[in-house]
Write a protein that binds this DNA or RNA. Structure first.
Lengths: 198, 198
DNA sequence: ACCTGAACACCGTTCAAGT
DNA sequence: ACCTGAACACCGTTCAAGT
């Protein structure tokens, strides 16, 4: 099957909501504005989504799938493990910086409805990232501890650096000059962990 | 001077907003609800704060000061450096878990007005935490790299672990079973960094 | 199956007026 | 200096009705 040239109304609503998130943030995504962009009445979205939250969940699910794809591309790109890890981190950082409100929707918004399909998409992107971490461990770039725990820690640190930056909390005076520098320091330190020392 | 037994209306508004954040989250902090708790009309808050955002900024500033105090207490408590670091992290985690909406207001909300006094309070709490990190470096518990950068990295990782948990993103299947475990792993790895190896 | 128009309760904010 | 009541524009959501 070729993809349809025209989006369904439902897809158009998701795309319009994404666009509004990018241009004006969460605040700007009102059902009325979304409906107007698509050219339907202010409550037509309710024929496709039970609530505003459900529409935002659909935006998030689509983006989680795209992130998983980006991570999987790095797994199969044929680079060495460390390059794959750095590229994956860079891809996430670029997504966050260029789509701030969408990043926060996916990784921080406490109002995001935890529908099973969304949780599945979120876990999928995490696990794709985890494959890269595991490969780094096999190549000795990262310490040989439990792979899932290590992936969780790196994911958390990466998220923390990104979230502080997006929230305007990451000033130079807090040692958080750039997300890249913070993440680079993390990888540098992890690379030099020696658990056989003591 | 002894503290007054009665709060001014302004202080009452800040306290009421804090309470509403704890009980119902950001969503529940409407100026109308705040005013009702204090017993004034729905727009009386405007005699004390120019906007809802400014009221929330006042809540944040007070809490940043309290966090700085908690960190400074650990500095002067007479414990060894590692205990001070672990206690400081535990204090932040406890604050986050018991006051989720307030934690996110301080460390994540992009709408928080960056007034100079608020930025100053935020930086103060960061620097108090940094003093503990520096002491750990002097005692050889943490790697001897630039102190501010290391503090920034630890702050970011701590924030990431907390924020993912508060947002419901920290499942066991993502290696994020508990904030304490993730932070414990971070400290464990940092403790075993050996930059003289290669 | 999908859409519309009117309506409801709620909100942040403004304003004229009161003490 | 501090407060009140009415009002405005806006929002999510519901409902009766249309094709």
């Amino acid at each position: 099957m070729f993809p349809r040239m025209t989006e369904t109304t439902k897809e158009q609503l998701v795309s319009a909501a994404s666009k509004l998130l990018d241009s004006g943030g969460q605040h700007a995504v009102t059902l009325r504005a979304v409906a107007e962009q698509v050219g339907v009445s202010h409550n037509a979205p309710y024929r496709h989504f039970p609530s505003r939250s459900a529409l935002l969940a659909a935006v998030a699910e689509r983006d989680f799938d795209r992130l998983r794809q980006a991570f999987e591309d790095q797994v199969s790109a044929g680079h060495d493990a460390e390059t794959a890890l750095r590229n994956a981190a860079a891809a996430l950082i670029e997504y966050a910086v260029q789509h701030k409100a969408r990043y926060r929707l996916l990784f921080s918004d406490p109002g995001l409805l935890p529908e099973p399909s969304l949780r599945h998409a979120a876990l999928g992107s995490f696990q794709a990232f985890g494959l890269i971490v595991s490969r780094c461990q096999r190549e000795g770039i990262l310490p040989a501890i439990d792979a899932v725990s290590l992936t969780g820690l790196i994911y958390a640190a990466l998220h923390g650096a990104i979230d502080l930056e997006l929230g305007g909390r990451a000033s130079e005076s807090k040692g958080l000059g750039s997300i890249e520098a913070t993440v680079g320091l993390l990888f540098h330190l992890l690379k030099n962990v020696d658990l056989n020392a003591a």
